[in-house]
């Protein structure tokens, strides 16, 4: 096992541990910490696979943005009263079976065909050249989508205030 494989194994383990925590805990701060661990694990995986730009974007957008948003929403709707706030869960066997089935399916199909990647170091300006070159349409569409999302959020929140 090369150093790279080891690093990949570590980051993937961190990811899975974070995901497991997110699923299993019902305690709000622990859920957030677990989700943060998972997202940082994803960033680390990107870094190991040679794309620092993706890693940093992941941290910027997810850990600094989305995760704070999640925690913020949780704090707003589930405030620390007398008892510890919990995130409601209804564990049941059916869901576990389905999830397990998904896992078996994915691992069985992808596992054999997907060898562990050798890192390809990507310079950020190459990514920029692709984004503004061949995939310019996609890039612009993402911009439109973001604008639409922004407006949607505004409309949703303003509509909520009216009632």
């Amino acid at each position: 096992m090369s150093a790279n494989d080891l690093a990949l194994a570590v980051t993937v383990t961190v990811m899975v541990a974070g995901a497991a925590g997110t699923v299993l805990t019902s305690d709000v701060p622990r859920l957030v910490i677990s989700l943060g661990t998972f997202l940082l694990g994803v960033a680390a995986a990107f870094l190991v696979m040679g794309s620092p730009l993706l890693a940093v974007s992941q941290v910027f957008v997810y850990v600094g943005g989305v995760l704070v948003l999640v925690l913020f929403a949780l704090m707003m709707v589930r405030r620390s009263g007398d008892e510890k706030p919990k995130v409601a869960t209804r564990h049941d066997l059916g869901a576990a079976v389905i999830a397990l089935g998904v896992f078996v399916l994915l691992a069985a199909v992808l596992g054999p065909v997907a060898a562990d990647p050798t890192p390809v170091v990507t310079a950020p300006n190459e990514v920029g050249a692709i984004l503004l070159g061949p995939s310019l349409v996609a890039f612009e569409l993402v911009g439109v989508l973001l604008l639409a999302a922004l407006l949607a959020v505004l409309v949703i929140v303003k509509g909520g205030e009216d009632s």
Binding site: D5, L8, A9, V12, T13, M15, V16, A19, A20, T22, V23, L31, F38, A45, V70, A73, L74, V77, V87, A88, T89, R90, H91, D92, G94, A95, A96, I98, A99, L100, V102, F103, L106, A107, L110, G111, A114, A115, D116, P117
Partner: peptide, 27 residues
């Protein structure tokens, strides 16, 4: 191989969370 299995595990954990959580934020 490691990545594929790990990602499959994380993905299916996500599926499990969506199926069992009752809280929209957790979903």
């Amino acid at each position: 191989m490691i990545v594929a299995i790990g990602c499959a595990a994380a993905f299916s954990l996500g599926v499990y969370a969506v199926l069992t959580r009752r809280d929209v934020i957790a979903i």
